[in-house]
Design a protein around this nucleic acid. Sequence first.
RNA 1: GCGCCUGUAGCUCAGCGGAAGAGCAUCGGACUUCUAAUCCGACGGUCGGGGGUUCGAAUCCCUCCAGGCGCACCA
Length: 502
Amino acid sequence: MRANAVERLAAQIGEIAGAEVELERPNDPAHGDYATNVALRTAPVQRRSPRELAEELARRVVDLPAVERAEVAGPGFLNLWLTRDWVVDALGEIDADYGGGFSEPHQRIQVELVSANPTGPVTVGSARNGAYGDSVARLLKFAGHAVEEEYYFNDSGRQVELFRESVEARRRGEPPPEGGYVGEYLEEIARQPGDPVDAMLEEIRREVAEFRISIDTWRRQAEIEAEVAALLPKLDTYESEGTVWARTSEYGDDKDRPLVRSSDRSYLYFAADVAYVRDKLERGFDRAVYVLGADHHGYVARLKAAAAMLGYDPERIEVLIYQLVHIVERGEARKGSKRRGDVVFLRELIEEIGIDAARWYLVSRGADQPIDIDVDLAREQTQKNPVYYVQYAHARIAGILRNAEKKPDAAAAPAVLDPLERDLLKRLTDFPTIVLEATERRAPHALPIFAIRVADDFHRFYHDLRVVGSDAEEFRLALCRATQHVIARCLDLIGVEAPERM
RNA sequence: GCGCCUGUAGCUCAGCGGAAGAGCAUCGGACUUCUAAUCCGACGGUCGGGGGUUCGAAUCCCUCCAGGCGCACCA
């Protein structure tokens, strides 16, 4: 792992302090470029007053070439101002891969996402699953892991049969079966010949690809179910009143789960779940990530229990839960039932606001936060969507680079940096920390937030300082290019395009 | 009843042990420009209530209130 400028600085200060040092960016510029609380944290251990410790640190730390000035503040914070050279050197290391490749060790990780039944087009709910899961997958890839994205679809259950019957009824001009599917999309499927499930699956493949989610493998439930019979004897099971149960409560689940139905000996859903867990881990993935909506949060314990019962480390199963997307229409909540046609589909959302705004919007909230979508309002809000603010910064930079007369050169920095240059550059150096935390916490929503900050600093810089034709042209071009790298990476990690022109 | 998640500016949200933030909305300014989809300024908060832990709590613990989602021989 190649340490970046901020990490190296933290390590140097840590050596002097004799403790792990975390550098944080203070909100208030009066608190310096970076601040650290080492003195506060280590004072009890060293049995010295935090301020005294901080003052000693301040005296020693200014000997570092990176540190211009150090001040003690409050109860014992150490505020640091960095030298012009440190900032300029930091610019030199910002390339297209800046912030990536930090994972250690590299793992084989599978991310299973979307996995909606092929009984209708992709809903906005599944789109959130896709936007979130795919961004996590992209972060893991950027970190250096070998990531595969998989879509698991049900091609054999009761819902699928009901869907088939509903389409066939429509083809015959008859009303749908009891509790059948009634959405308008059935009409277009009914017009196509052949198995409606195949047609629906093709449509889903198209929509998922259009939404910039690239699925490596498509796994059929029937395929997994075929493995159940051979698997049953290996499980910890018992029979009660004709039903075969898995003793999952012994493995961390809150109750046992039925595997085989008593009436007709058919397999229940959990049987396929167990077989699928085994299938994933046997394929050699170090880690299997599930992306599930909050309505499935009860699955966490049973999936981990399934792994444990099979003799695998349950830590290899990771379940990401995101809160649901609620559809609001003129102030009223809709149920969101695909079967009853009471949903909003991804393709409608894309039609209203476009792919970029849709991906941005669905990923820019924390997964713990529910999302309300009012499609009537979506288009209106699109005009103000920050995604354009960020893309505009990228396009502006592309324009500058097109017009440039000289070549970017980070080393051609002036003796004194303008505060706007300095602020922008310092912002860029935050990127590796942002990505690292977003990856570890599976929180891609940090990326759009950070991208807005970068765009902010860039637009300010652009507004006040000339690049092309200025005395500092080479340096500013380098700064522009570095900014472009960081913005493009942020956008790519959430599946949004970085336009050259707008 | 039990479990998970959430209550922060008028609205939508970020921050999740260190020195309260953003966007939108509202009000007032800046275009002979490398793209005004931009910039500058103002307004705005007992961080749901109460207790506790800590040098320090929006952040951790307990409790109460409010909301969302689960708790099937459905998937």
